[in-house]
Design a protein around this nucleic acid. Structure first.
Lengths: 238, 238
DNA sequence: GCGAAAACTATACGCCGTGAAGTTTGAATA
DNA sequence: TATTCAAACTTCACGGCGTATAGTTTTCGC
């Protein structure tokens, strides 16, 4: 927690308790799935009463929303880091690193993935401008960077499709267009499609649907990456 | 329900009650999401006691499992029908019809889609050889048919990848190999990847994640289909 | 008509989220 | 230092949930 030092004792304790609630909630989720996130269970674990948590989160759904925000931000951080760690001179390697980081995060945090991309809260609506939409836009921007890196090779394959800027969300464009001023709308559409491809395989795997079909999801994902790089007009490394 | 006529009065009533329980459960799910499937709510709607349902389903999860089986079978029927309705002479049209049917079913039955592909029951494991794995294999077989139809054009693009028959589930292969005796393992891998592509875009849309990025998911999916057909070495129609 | 089995109800237990009201605690102020 | 007051926390309560156990009613086969 940043700035803990500058707070008064009271605020510091409050911040620590808030953090502990979230930590315990994540532990419970890791061991028992999203449904195990229970105010009473958290309180039990912390030696408190369930109602005490209402001093920190207005409602159980509020707590879950906060967890989603945190997790989505962590996911976005992870893929950004992988992207930045790969050599900028080698777009194919960057793309592979990005996608592999995405899948690895999902496999390492399956319950987190479910919480982010599933819908644990019935009728849950992400608040406008919250951390989760921001993280979602970061992820999409990452894929757009991926598409942008490949656009010199792939553009001629995917241009057209009569996409216009008005087809996309303003918040997303606010992140994407300044970063890649020369990119056409078709490139953003390509990015969203790539997102869909990766998300599909990963979520089938995380939710256990792939397991019923193949014993080698790793191999399948590797093949997917190779095909992705090729479909972007580039040559896959190693 | 088949064979209703030949049953005794008792069995008939029993079958009707069972069907009503499932119907009410589906209605509740449609209006309030999977969490609204509650034994007490169903019983209330039927003018019964919640415990009466235990005469028909051993547990709430059993009921949900049955619903998943029914829904997955309905989905498999829908895509099979679309496939068969398109002219066999035009593989591209068949593929497009299949994929469009998949998406339409999902958009028409979003809660059903969640029930099938999400994980409403924590730690839920599909029983071996049940209706749901069977429907899953049917869906995968459908996509394999799709890959098989395109294999004459697409094979050279996707062969290799060192896939072997042992990489795939026996139940799936039992359906796939007799139907397409000449197909190599790489074609099944391609089919699973295509499944992933479609599933990804559709599930992002059903779960509301696409809405935060684009206002034209239809256009995006149309583009996806065009790219799919092209990536299979064929020419997209209209 | 009768006995058995099936269908259903009644009651109860332990979970859950959450609201209202009361109590403790600790920091700021007079 | 004594007082005050808000924050932190507890207690009690309500209704909803799945489900186990036991009891009651209905209905079919003989």
């Amino acid at each position: 927690m940043a700035g803990t030092r500058s707070m008064g004792r009271r605020e510091r304790l409050r911040a620590e308790t808030t953090a502990e609630i979230k930590d315990v909630a994540l532990e419970l989720m890791a061991s028992g799935g999203p449904d195990a996130i229970t105010l009473r269970a958290i309180a039990r674990e912390m030696g408190m009463t369930a109602n005490a948590i209402y001093g920190y989160f207005a409602t159980r759904d509020d707590l879950v929303t906060t967890l989603i925000n945190d997790l989505y931000t962590a996911l976005a951080d992870a893929v950004d880091a992988a992207w930045n760690a790969a050599p900028a001179k080698d777009p194919a390697a960057r793309i592979q690193a990005w996608a592999a980081a995405f899948r690895n995060w999902a496999l390492d945090n399956p319950e987190g993935f479910r919480l982010i991309y599933g819908d644990p809260v019935p009728g849950y609506q992400a608040p406008e401008g919250g951390a989760a939409p921001d993280a979602a836009h970061r992820v999409c921007t990452g894929i757009t960077a991926l598409a942008a890196a490949a656009w010199p090779h792939a553009g001629r394959l995917y241009e057209g499709g009569d996409f216009e800027w008005s087809d996309f969300d303003d918040g997303l464009l606010a992140k994407v267009r300044p970063a890649f001023p020369d990119l056409p709308p078709a490139a953003v559409a390509l990015a969203l499609r790539i997102w869909g491809h990766l998300h599909g395989l990963i979520s089938l795997e995380v939710y256990g649907h792939l397991r019923a079909q193949t014993t080698s999801p790793d191999k399948l994902f590797r093949q997917e990456l190779t095909a992705l790089i090729r479909s972007l007009g580039m040559a896959p490394g190693n």
